[in-house]
Amino acid sequence: MKTMKRILTAAALALTVTSVTADPITEAVKSEHRSADAKARDEYRNPQQTLRFFGIEPDMKVIEIWPGGGWYTDILADLLKDNGELVTAHFFVDDSTPDYYKNSLKKFNERVESHPPYAGITVTAFHPQNALEVTERGTADAVLTFRNVHNWYMNAGKEGVEASFKAFYNALKPGGVLGVVEHEMPASGNDADMKKSGYMKRDFVIAAAEAAGFELEASSDINANPMDNANHPKGVWTLPPSLALKEEDRAKYLAIGESNRMTLKFVKPEA
């Protein structure tokens, strides 16, 4: 009888510990709504560690910039569905927009309409020149952007990157967080290559954010990959998942894995 009581007590304690230590971010990453292909990339994108580093909580208003197909949206939507708010600032589309961007936005909107976990998401638009109001000013707790800075630089230059960061600054509350993950070029790299390689220098990104009014609070090696030297025939797209060279040296680039990435946490100073 005493043995049975000890077993029941141990089981109860285990349940209690599990309930107390259950992490909302971990649960969101494990969500059944995420595909097996998406979860296979966790090894390189490290969503749990990244969102914890940025300080994302379930009751925040979070703006995700250019969510693409929704890889991070799947996690954020689950995390914020009960007590928070998720705004996805997707591609800005007009008559001159390339079909790739139009089709990406169309597929995302269809998913918002048909995919139950996306039911509470608000979709807005962002462009470094044509759409800078991603949400009501001063209302967001966090703005997150994953591997997008190079796109703004390649298409709109330094001014486009600074305008982007200023838009995010305006969207945030005082004390709000800007979380940036970006493909990282070594400090010794050629600045001109930032226009075509998909890699950006850390100092450049930090300077652009500071020019917008942000302060760098912390940086992390969560998404670093020391095997990536950022020098590839087709830039960052040489590596997985793009594998732009197709079968040429495929094993070599698969062995390197996804790109080396900087992970930077900026804060909008308190008023």
Rank of each mutant, 00 (worst) to 15 (best):
M1L: 12
T3W: 14
M4F: 14
M4H: 13
K5L: 15
I7N: 04
I7C: 04
A12G: 15
T16F: 14
V17D: 04
T21E: 09
P24W: 11
I25S: 11
A28N: 03
V29Y: 05
K30I: 00
E32T: 13
H33M: 01
S35D: 05
S35Y: 01
K39E: 06
D42M: 05
L51D: 10
F54E: 08
E57Y: 00
E57C: 01
M60D: 12
K61R: 15
K61M: 15
I65H: 02
P67E: 10
G68P: 02
G69P: 02
A77K: 04
N83F: 06
E85C: 00
H90P: 02
H90R: 01
F91V: 05
T97Y: 06
S104N: 12
L105T: 10
V112L: 11
P117E: 01
G120W: 08
G120M: 08
I121D: 10
A125M: 12
H127W: 02
H127G: 04
A131T: 03
V134E: 03
T135R: 06
D141A: 12
D141N: 14
L144C: 06
F146C: 01
N148I: 04
V149L: 08
Y153T: 00
M154C: 05
V161C: 13
A167C: 07
A171L: 01
A171W: 02
P174N: 12
G179F: 07
G179R: 06
H183W: 12
E184R: 15
E184D: 09
E184A: 13
M185K: 07
A187D: 15
A192R: 04
A192I: 03
D193P: 00
K196M: 07
K201M: 15
D203L: 04
F204G: 11
F204C: 12
E210Y: 06
E215P: 00
E217L: 12
E217N: 09
S219I: 03
S219Y: 00
I222W: 03
N223P: 03
M227E: 14
P233F: 06
P240R: 10
P241C: 11
S242P: 04
L245F: 01
D249R: 11
R250Q: 10
A251Y: 01
Y253G: 06
L254D: 13
A255P: 00
A255K: 14
G257M: 10
R261T: 09
F266A: 12
A271K: 14
